[in-house]
Design a protein around this nucleic acid. Structure first.
Lengths: 301, 301
DNA sequence: GTCTATAGAATGATAGAC
DNA sequence: GTCTATCATTCTATAGAC
C-alpha cells in the first residue's frame, strides 16, 4: 500500500522531465525526421521517458515541426557539411516543394483540413520513394512491406492506410517513374532539330535518369529488364510501350544506309542503354560521354 | 460388427483391381514420367486405388520402367508428332545419354549399385533443369522449393537429399550454365581467323544459348542482369568475369578507328546481346541474323 | 531415396482501439 | 493516421520412419 506510485509528482520533477523529453524529441526530429509521433514516443518510452504520441506531437508543434516536411525543411536549413540529407530525403523535399507550388496555383483548401492533407500526401511520397529504393535493390519479392515500413518510421500495417496492397504500390511507383522518364527525355530533346543530336540528347537523359536520378526513375529502369512477375509485367506494358514510342520516332527520323533494320537498331540501342545500370560507376564516365560514344558508333563516324 | 471390412477380398476383385491399377500406373509413366513412386501412389490413392509406393515400383519393373530415364526413353521411342517431349525432358535425356557414354568409357561400378547411382544422378539433373526453368521465369525469390519439388514429382523435403540448400542449387545451376555458355561460344569461334567473323560467331552463339538453348543457359543469361541478391551476385562474379574475358579478347583483336573506347564498346555489345532475351520471338529473326546486323552496325558497313 | 510431419521464421494483409 | 494484435499462408529446412 505504502509503495503505490504517486500520480502527482512534485512540480520540480515534472518540469525537469518535460525538459529532458523535449530535448530528446528534438533530437529525434533531427536524426529521424521521418519517424511518426507514435514511433518517437515508443522509442522514448523504451529509453525510460514517460511520454505519449500526442505528447510528442505537442512538443513538435511548439517548435513548428509537426509534419515530416517541416522537420526536413528545418534540417535542410540548419545542416552543415557534416550533416547530409539522404537522397530519399532530398527527393521528398523536392516533391514537397513542387506540390506546394501546385497547390498554391490551383486551389485553396479549408484552412483546417489543409495541414493534415498535406502531411498525408507527404508521407505517401516518402513511402513511394522508399519503396522505389527497396524494389530497385531487392526486386519485387525481395522487398518486404515490413522493411519498407521500418524505413519510413511506420509499423507494417500502417502502410496499408496509404496503399491498398504491395502490388498497387509497385505499380504506382512505376507509373510515376515512366511519367518522369518521359518528361525528362522530352525536356532534354527540347527544340533541337538535328535528328542525330536529338537521339544523343535522349540517350543522355535516359542514362542520367537510370544511374544518377532519384530512386523512382532508377527502379523503373531496373524493371525494364528484370521483372519476373507476369501480372505486373502486363500492368506496366502500356507505360513501357508509350516510352519506347519516343525512340521509335527518334530513330525513324535518322538518315540511315539502306541495309539497316530500324527496329533491330532500336532493340540494340535499348539494350546498350539499360545495360549501363549494370556497369556504371559514379565519378568515371559521365552519361553524356556514354551517350555520345553510343550515338557515334551507331552513326559510324 | 457385421459391416467390418473384409481383409481378404475375393480373388476376382483383386485381379480386376490390380489390372486397373496397372493401367493407371502406365498412364502416369506416360503422362508424368518424372513422378516418383510415392508421388504416383499418392495420386492413385486419391483417385480411389489401393496401392503403395512399392506397389508402383513393382509394376514399373514389370515393364522395365523403374527409372525416370527409362520412362522418358520409352516415351521418346513411342511418341508421335502429337506427343512432344518438353524441353526439360529432352535436356534430361541428352544429359542421361552423355553420362551413360562417359560411364561406359571410364569405369564400371558394381552391378548392384549401378542402377541406383545412375537413377540418383538422373534425378539430380532433372532437378537442376527444372530449377533453372523456375529461376529463369520467377527469379530467385519467386521460385519456391515447393514448386520445384512438385515439378519433378518429389515432396519439398526430398529435394534436400540432392542439394544442401536453395542457394547451392542456384549456384550449381549457374556454374553449369556458364560452363555451357563458354563451351558454346568457344566451339562456335572454332578455328575462324578473321576477327570480325569471330565476333559475329560468338554473338550468334551467345544469343542462341540465351533464347533457344536449354533452361540452364537461359537462366544464366537472365541472371546476368536481373540478380538482386548481393550474396549470390558475389558468388557468381568469378564465372561472369571469366565469360566476359572471351569478349575482351575478341574486341581487342578488332581493327577499329582511333576514337573508339573498346571497353565501352564491349559494354554496349553485352547490353544489346542480353537485351535479346526481352524481345526475341521464335520464328521471327534468327540469332544468326541478329548477330550479323549487330556486328555490321559496330563495323560501320 | 523418399516420405511424413513439422519446426521456426517471414510474409502480406486485416480488424478494431485510440 | 497510426498502432496493437494477430491471422492465414508461405517459406526454407530438418528429423526420423520406412
Amino acid at each position: 500500500m505504502s509503495y503505490m506510485p504517486m500520480t502527482n509528482k512534485p512540480p520540480h520533477d515534472r518540469r525537469t522531465a518535460r525538459l529532458a523529453a523535449e530535448k530528446e524529441v528534438l533530437r529525434y526530429a533531427r536524426e529521424h525526421p521521418e519517424f511518426g509521433q507514435a514511433h518517437v514516443a515508443e522509442a522514448l518510452r523504451a529509453a525510460g521517458f514517460n511520454i505519449s504520441p500526442s505528447g510528442v506531437r505537442y512538443l513538435w508543434q511548439e517548435h513548428g515541426l509537426e509534419t515530416t516536411y517541416k522537420r526536413l525543411k528545418a534540417l535542410e536549413r540548419s545542416s552543415g557539411p557534416e550533416f547530409e540529407l539522404s537522397p530519399n530525403q532530398r527527393e521528398f523535399l523536392r516533391r514537397g516543394d513542387v506540390s506546394r507550388k501546385l497547390a498554391r496555383k490551383t486551389q485553396r483548401r479549408t484552412v483546417a483540413g489543409s495541414a493534415e492533407t498535406e502531411a498525408t500526401a507527404e508521407r505517401r511520397q516518402l513511402i513511394l520513394a522508399a519503396a522505389a529504393q527497396l524494389f530497385g535493390e531487392r526486386g519485387y519479392n525481395g522487398a518486404s512491406v515490413r522493411d519498407l515500413a521500418q524505413q519510413v518510421g511506420l509499423l507494417p500495417g500502417s502502410v496499408y492506410h496509404h496503399f491498398p496492397s504491395k502490388e498497387e504500390l509497385f505499380v504506382e511507383v512505376h507509373r510515376e517513374g515512366f511519367r518522369q522518364l518521359i518528361a525528362d527525355v522530352e525536356a532534354a530533346i527540347g527544340r533541337e532539330a538535328d535528328p542525330w543530336r536529338r537521339l544523343e540528347l535522349a540517350c543522355t537523359a535516359h542514362i542520367h535518369a537510370l544511374v544518377e536520378g532519384n530512386s523512382i526513375s532508377t527502379v523503373t529502369g531496373v524493371s525494364l529488364f528484370s521483372l519476373h512477375e507476369p501480372r505486373l509485367k502486363r500492368r506496366l506494358q502500356g507505360d513501357r510501350d508509350r516510352y519506347e514510342e519516343i525512340f521509335v520516332r527518334l530513330i525513324g527520323d535518322l538518315e540511315l544506309p539502306g541495309g539497316i533494320d530500324r527496329t533491330l537498331l532500336r532493340m540494340f540501342l535499348f539494350g546498350a542503354l539499360n545495360w549501363t545500370l549494370i556497369w556504371f560507376r559514379p565519378g568515371k564516365k559521365k552519361p553524356q560521354e556514354i551517350a555520345r560514344q553510343m550515338v557515334t558508333m551507331i552513326r559510324g563516324h
